[in-house]
């Protein structure tokens, strides 16, 4: 671990659960924090759209009711990704990642638009399926090495986690972080509310970055 994410600055222990801060995880944590604060303070934008076949344009408004729910989901998503990037326990990591998946669905699902809801549902199916490899990966790591602590796994005192388990973990994270790929289908961007939609991409990005570190050290 000393060479990958940098030496840990600080390890916070709650019994066998632990949270550690290396330069890498701290950077990710700060980024999650910054964007969560942005989601907290900024009002959603009003998307300008042209009516098809005419010269008319109009700006979409977001209702307060909808906004409240989506903002809550965006903040929950930010908190979940903060948890995912700093946690030192593999199973907690998978739980936080699963939480990111749920909240990502929540952020877009509040929009009353058939296309958006369809995209959210399909994404939700993928995210739900992805919990299988995610938990299975963590389970196999626990079975083969006898520990779930990333610090212990990185220290080299326990056997290395099998390649299969690491591949399962990656697969799970890819599935949970699918939202931006659905975004590429442009359906999700019919949903106004940039500060919240951006949280989808950010959280998936952060869990990708974190799992890259995790599979390298365990």
């Amino acid at each position: 671990m000393s060479s990958l994410g940098g030496a840990p600055w600080y390890i916070l222990e709650f019994g066998d659960e632990l949270v550690y801060f290396t330069p890498y995880t701290t950077t990710l944590l700060i980024l999650a924090l910054v964007f969560t604060v942005l989601a907290l303070v900024s009002r959603p934008e009003r998307q300008v759209e042209a009516l098809f076949g005419t010269d008319a344009i109009y700006a979409k408004d977001t209702t307060v009711d909808q906004m409240r729910f989506r903002r809550f989901m965006a903040i929950a998503c930010g908190c979940a990704s903060m948890g995912a990037v700093v946690t030192g326990d593999l199973f907690n990591f998978t739980l936080f990642v699963a939480l990111v998946g749920i909240t990502n669905v929540g952020i877009v699902a509040a929009v009353k638009n058939r296309h958006v809801q369809n995209a959210a549902f399909q994404y939700g199916l993928v995210a739900l399926t992805a919990t299988v490899p995610l938990f299975a990966g963590a389970g196999i790591v626990a079975a083969t090495t006898g520990t779930l602590s990333i610090v212990a796994l990185a220290s080299g005192t326990v056997p290395q986690a099998p390649f299969f388990a690491r591949a399962l973990l990656c697969l799970g994270v890819v599935g949970e972080g699918m939202a931006p790929f659905y975004a590429a289908k442009a359906e999700m961007f019919r949903a106004p509310g940039a500060p919240y939609v951006i949280m989808c991409s950010l959280s998936s990005l952060l869990i990708f970055l974190r799992v890259a570190e995790v599979v390298m050290v365990i």
Binding site: Y24, T27, L31, F35, L205
Partner: peptide
Amino acid sequence: GGSILIIFGVYMLHKI
């Protein structure tokens, strides 16, 4: 001279 992983993270964040 820190970790190249952080730069990698920043590069990906540029997309966001």
